[in-house]
């Protein structure tokens, strides 16, 4: 479970996160959605430790995530863009992560087969397509079957077959009790996967609840329309 409490983050004069408080429970897929520049990626980066919040706390399974590399032993993170060093191969990257997380059991070979990456493992990253690099990113994020998974636009650039396989993997991890947070603009993916929605707008959590509650509150039956109603409501609240 991820607990975010009173999180603030300002880049120069731009306040990106404003008193964000939310809980991302385990055995559940939570979608973090919102318009471009709303603070979704910053929130995820704060949880994984890429961005250092100004104030607030983040706990992952009861362990503080701030300035605590040990906490990342249980987290898998897949970034929006998977650009890795030109001259390294996917095999090098897998070996490097294995070396860092020595002792943890991994399922890299299974994932490599699942994403059909066997033929690309010895090629330098510079010759791989964006989609293939994204698959490598998925392998690196999921290879240790982490108890907490953060996925930032995970299906961007993936072919339909790989997208389905990734979704199946995510659903399997949920059933095994993992805490999963996904940031995506693809509402069909969210509708298919998410149990809960955290809607972030201009750095504020405008909605935090289950998908069912969202449908009930908005009176809509599609996620797109239900989200639109939140946007209208939060816009009305601001004005």
């Amino acid at each position: 479970m991820i607990t975010v409490n009173a999180l603030h983050k300002t880049f120069r004069t731009h306040q990106v996160l404003k008193d964000v408080t939310t809980t991302i429970p385990s055995s559940c897929i939570t979608a973090i959605i919102g318009p471009n520049g709303s603070g979704k990626t910053t929130l995820m980066k704060c949880i994984i430790g890429l961005v250092r919040p100004d104030t607030g706390t983040i706990d992952v399974d009861g362990m503080t995530a701030l300035d605590n590399p040990e906490c990342r032993t249980m987290i898998g993170y897949m970034s929006q863009v998977a650009r890795y060093p030109d001259n390294l191969t996917p095999q090098d990257l897998v070996a490097m992560i294995r070396g860092i997380r020595k002792g943890q059991r991994d399922t890299a070979d299974e994932l490599i087969a699942e994403f059909e990456l066997e033929g690309h493992m010895r090629k330098p990253m510079r010759v791989l397509s964006g989609g293939t690099r994204q698959k490598v990113g998925a392998v690196l994020a999921l290879m240790f079957t982490p108890s907490t998974v953060l996925l930032d636009e995970p299906t961007a650039g993936l072919d339909p077959l790989s997208t389905e396989r990734l979704k199946e993997r995510i659903l399997a991890m949920r059933s095994q009790g993992a805490t999963i947070a996904i940031s995506s603009h693809v509402l069909s993916d969210i509708q298919e996967l998410a149990d809960r929605i955290v809607y972030v707008q201009e750095g504020i959590v405008a909605y935090d609840g289950t998908v069912q509650e969202l449908y009930m509150q908005s009176g809509e039956t599609s996620l797109g329309k239900a989200v639109t109603s939140i946007i209208r409501r939060s816009g009305a609240l601001r004005s």
Partner: peptide, 12 residues
């Protein structure tokens, strides 16, 4: 930068 991000997301 993305490689640095990858390393920063590991327990290092």
């Amino acid at each position: 930068r993305d490689f640095v991000e990858l390393m920063l997301t590991q327990p290092v």
